[in-house]
Nucleic acid binder design. Structure first.
Lengths: 173, 173
DNA sequence: ACCTGAACACCGTTCAAGT
DNA sequence: ACCTGAACACCGTTCAAGT
């Protein structure tokens, strides 16, 4: 049967998970799918578009996350940010991939809209809520980027979680 | 005369400044210096080492920055972080280059040690000072990364400065 | 000591031509 | 409509051999 966009995305996801961004080339992807490299470009505009889809897939679980909870908004914001960290941390080079997607679409990529809603709910004025959300996301991306870079180099990452927790506390106090 | 390490670093710096990380290849570097690509590897272990040197050069002005000032520590920390942002913002893809260097050496790359000193001076306990410094640096790297990614794509960056200032305020309040 | 020549094992993307 | 074949213009790194 014919190659499909979904098939390409699934194969790309698999390579990213198992081998990282360095191994996710269009040529490697084509080889895994048993087609010529050029065939991919019938279904996908370019590599960047493909990475954008992978980024969206990574944060997808967040949009349905605990938005109708009973806990205080501050705690729900903390929880959502922790969940965001977990999701990108679970994928090799996840921070790098999501970072580009966030840069292209800062306001609409999860968990920014959800965090804006929570900050507004807890009494922040319009503008401040947006800034708080962006700061939380950019700090988290910076933290995970460091952690995954160190992981890939075989360096110690035992203090990463404590550093993240401290930063989160600082930002939500 | 013979090729030198300094000559290589200077040429690499020039390419990074003018054309960005995408154009900074070992082959392009060799062509600009009028040598074969392999010649570079007599003076430099690999590309990563070279990028590390460039990162250090970017933040070098910070180590002598306003450490004996009369202003309150909080203001000096804010000023130092702003200066850090300016330095990496001034170099194409500066955030990406410095991010790796920070990940390899989080505690010793400027402005982390200076920020730790300032936080301690203003009354923070040992551990907290380190966390504050790391959070400031990682947020800044995340912010500039977004800004430079958008710049490279021709997207609007007019809100970047306000977003950075708001985050800084949030972290140092 | 320092560099060339040449290779190895790769990249992303395009596009005429085939089916 | 969808894919192949083949090319274009590149990568980082190694290493025998030359000077």
């Amino acid at each position: 049967m014919a190659l499909s966009r979904d098939q390409i995305v699934a194969a790309a996801w698999g390579i990213l998970q198992s081998y990282g961004l360095g191994d996710l080339s269009m040529r490697r992807l084509a080889k895994d799918l048993g087609v010529q490299p050029g065939a991919l470009y019938w279904h996908v505009a370019n590599k960047q578009e493909l990475l954008g889809v992978l980024a969206q897939r990574m944060v997808a679980p967040l949009s349905t996350e605990a938005l109708d909870d009973a806990a205080p908004p501050r705690d729900r914001a903390a929880h959502l940010t922790r969940e965001f960290r977990s999701l990108i941390l679970a994928v090799r080079d996840g921070a790098e991939v999501v970072s580009v997607a966030h840069s292209i679409n800062p306001e609409s990529l999860s968990p920014v809209p959800e965090l804006v809603a929570l900050s507004t709910e807890s009494g922040s004025p319009q503008g401040e809520a947006k800034y708080t959300a962006l700061t939380l996301v950019r700090f988290t991306l910076g933290s995970v980027s460091t952690e995954q870079t160190r992981e890939a180099m075989g360096l110690d990452t035992s203090s990463s979680e404590a550093e993240f927790t401290a930063g989160l506390e600082l930002l939500l106090s």
